[in-house]
Every structure is written in structure tokens, then in C-alpha cells.
């Protein structure tokens, strides 16, 4: 794909998508400056100058009763009338927006009424919750597009090319994840982070699935049976090897432990959905090589390898 040719089109497309996706509440200004109908037009002039705004809603208590803009102020000044109150000059036929309406609807209202701003009121209580100007919409869209571009750049950055960029007879990348013994709230977190990293590195999703199913089972064993340990993933161009290493009690009879259904796990482990003697057979089924070195009283090193082809080639 040639990015230079295609990139302008998705950008326009994304902006168009955004005006349908985004809601009024995501673009509106929440900290609204308002005036009372009892304020004079002179007060209004000062407020507008101070706050650098060109229009404000008029609130009586917390009820929206009107809207007054710089045009009303100019008209009032041009007529050279004695000092008037906002109540006399404001527009009372206020068109409002609801926070959950899409931006595309708001844009249509701007086109239809040619107003510079719309008060946004809560659908139920009809209380003022914000103001929306075209400037708010533009700012919101630009911010979203910028976020989108950053995400797109991140996607284009493919660390899988790492192995092509380094020159060596043999290269490997090692990722290590600590596993806390007995901590079930985080049991799976190591494999979860490993999975994200493998996908980011461009390892094929199917291989990633096999690796992380095996590493999750191995991680559960470390959490259930030991005081803790480590998952060490070694990524090479054509394979991923994971060592689940612990200093736990060790496995007295590895052959017996490999039999489906054989388990020494306590009952409460079953409440977590494990401990049915399927862990090691699962690891074996998902991997291309499995080695278990275990010494009772010293610890276990469970090592498995999955052959991989990278997702991008």
C-alpha cells in the first residue's frame, strides 16, 4: 500500500465519520458565562469584553429564558436609547440542543438558523449544561483527528522489523514478567502483557494464541503452587520460547502430572476455573516443544517453544 497516495482520503473520511460519531456534549463548553435578565446592556458589554465572548445565555435562577449576543448589543447602542436591561433586548425564542445529539445535527442547526451559538440543555430537566459554537466543534474535531493520527502512527510502527534491522548471526529479544505467588487478582496479568507484546511485535495471532494459552496455564501453576516466579519469553525470528521459572516445591512425578485429569491442586483453585489436571496437557497441546525440569524442594523450570511466522510476512 502506498501511504502517500492514500493518506489524504482517510483523513477526510475520518472527519466525516467524526461528525456523525461525536455528540454535542463532547464538543460543548461546559463552563458557561451567563447573565441575568436584570443585568443592564452596559453590564453585558463589560462581561463580553472581559470574557472575550460574543454572546451569552440569559438565566433567571437556573432557567434559560433567553440568549443575548454582540449583535443585540450593537443594535441597542446604535439606537442610542437610554440604558436598557438585558430582558428587553435578549432573544427569547431560543433554539437549544440536547447533549446527546450528534454533531452533524448541530451543524445543520447552525446552517439553518445562522446563529453563532446554541445553548445545550438537559433533555429531562431542561437546565442549561453548556454552550456550543462552531469554534467548539472545530476544536473538538481537530483534537480527535490529532489523537487518531497518533494512533495511526503507532500502528505503522512495526517493531517486528527489529530482526531485519539488526545484524547478527543469531538474535533474540527477551521479555520478563514477574509472577506473584498466591495473588489471584493478577494471575494472568503476565500472560496478558506478553500477549500484547507478541502481537505488537508482529507475531502471528494464531501462534500468539497458542503461546499465551500455554503461558497462562504455566502462570496459574506458579501462582497456585509456589511463592512466585517469572515468565521469561525469548523471541527469535522463527520461534518463541517461554520459561516459567519458580523456586516452588517442585513436581515429584512429572509423567504423572502430565496425565490429563491428574491434579494436586487444592479445592479452592477449582473455584477459579483451574485445578482440574488440564494445565500441563493444555500446555503440551499448544506448543511444539515442552521440557520440564523440576527438583523437589528447589523449583521448576517449565520451558516450551512455539514455532512462529510473523504476521507481516
Amino acid at each position: 500500500m502506498n501511504n502517500n497516495e492514500t493518506s489524504p482520503v482517510p483523513t477526510i473520511g475520518r472527519a466525516q465519520e467524526l461528525i456523525y460519531e461525536l455528540k454535542v456534549e463532547q464538543a460543548m463548553t461546559r463552563a458557561v458565562v451567563a447573565v441575568s435578565p436584570e443585568n443592564t446592556m452596559d453590564d453585558l458589554r463589560n462581561i463580553m469584553r472581559e470574557k472575550q465572548i460574543s454572546g451569552t445565555p440569559v438565566l433567571e435562577g437556573d432557567t434559560l429564558v433567553g440568549i443575548v449576543s454582540i449583535e443585540d448589543l450593537i443594535k441597542s447602542l446604535a439606537q442610542g436609547q437610554p440604558p436598557a436591561k438585558v430582558r428587553e433586548k435578549m432573544c427569547t425564542n431560543v433554539v437549544t440542543l440536547f447533549p446527546d445529539e450528534p454533531i452533524v445535527f448541530a451543524l445543520n442547526q447552525f446552517r439553518r438558523y445562522r446563529y453563532g451559538r446554541f445553548p445545550v440543555v438537559d433533555r429531562k430537566s431542561k437546565k442549561l449544561v453548556g454552550m456550543l459554537t462552531k469554534g467548539d466543534i472545530v476544536r473538538c474535531l481537530l483534537k480527535r483527528l490529532e489523537t487518531n493520527n497518533i494512533q495511526a502512527e503507532l500502528c505503522q510502527y512495526r517493531p517486528g522489523h527489529l530482526f531485519e534491522d539488526v545484524i547478527a548471526d543469531r538474535s533474540a529479544l527477551t521479555l520478563r514478567y514477574q509472577v506473584e505467588g498466591g495473588n489471584f487478582e493478577h494471575a494472568g496479568n503476565g500472560s496478558s502483557r506478553l500477549k500484547n507484546s507478541l502481537l505488537r511485535l508482529g507475531i502471528h495471532p494464531e501462534a500468539t494464541r497458542r503461546i499465551t494459552i500455554a503461558s497462562y496455564e504455566a502462570e496459574m501453576n506458579v501462582v497456585v503452587f509456589t511463592q512466585g516466579g517469572e515468565l521469561i519469553a525469548t523471541i527469535e525470528p522463527d520461534r518463541v520460547t517461554v520459561n516459567a521459572v519458580d523456586e516452588g516445591p517442585g513436581i515429584p512425578d512429572v509423567d504423572l502430572a502430565m496425565q490429563p485429569g491428574y491434579s494436586t491442586a487444592p479445592d479452592w483453585v477449582r473455584e477459579l476455573g483451574f485445578g482440574a489436571g488440564m494445565g500441563l496437557p493444555n500446555i503440551k497441546n499448544n506448543t511444539d516443544e515442552l521440557k520440564i525440569n523440576s527438583i523437589v524442594g528447589e523449583g521448576t523450570n517449565l520451558q516450551f517453544t512455539v514455532n512462529t511466522i510473523r504476521a507481516d510476512g
Partner: peptide, 29 residues
């Protein structure tokens, strides 16, 4: 969850009576 890891296919719907975080990690893997 070991059965799910062993037999479930990618993209499946998982029905379970278990509610711990292990369900989510299992689904993720």
C-alpha cells in the same frame, strides 16, 4: 477455564458461571 483454553475457538461466545478475573484473562488468551 482450562477447558475453555483447551477447546474454545477464537471468536466464540463464552458462557460461564464463574465471575472472577480469571474468566477475562482466559477469554483474552
Amino acid at each position: 477455564m482450562s477447558d475453555v483454553l483447551s477447546f474454545a475457538k477464537p471468536g466464540a461466545l463464552l458462557l460461564t458461571g464463574l465471575t472472577t478475573v480469571q474468566v477475562i484473562y482466559t477469554a483474552e488468551m
